[in-house]
Amino acid sequence: MVTIPFSHGLLLAAALFLLGVICVLTRRNIIFMLLGLEIMLNAAGLAFVVAGARWGQPDGQIMFLIVLAMAAAEVSVGLALVLEWYHRMHSLDVDQASRLRG
């Protein structure tokens, strides 16, 4: 098995997470935003696995499983929303969904 510093694994997770953040903040296409969310969730799962490996415990993987289940649920609802939204607005521009403006 590998013998890398603990912090390197976490840094990898942080880098992936921040790329996901950039994706969510930059892209106006709602599908890309969902992709960004997936990247962030995956990064979080990675951080759990790294931590679990650090202590030699299965808990990290279990948290990853739960993150995975959540990602699946999120993506199913999210994509259903995307379909409905596109059906109504004929656009994927998330900035058009601004009827809650104060």
Binding site: M1, V2, P5, F6, S7, A14, A53, G56
Partner: peptide
């Protein structure tokens, strides 16, 4: 990076779980 860099945990060889 600042936070994690300061966290100089020793390199470990994790056993496979």
């Amino acid at each position: 990076v600042y936070v994690l860099g300061g966290w100089s945990a020793p390199a470990t060889t994790p056993a496979a779980i």
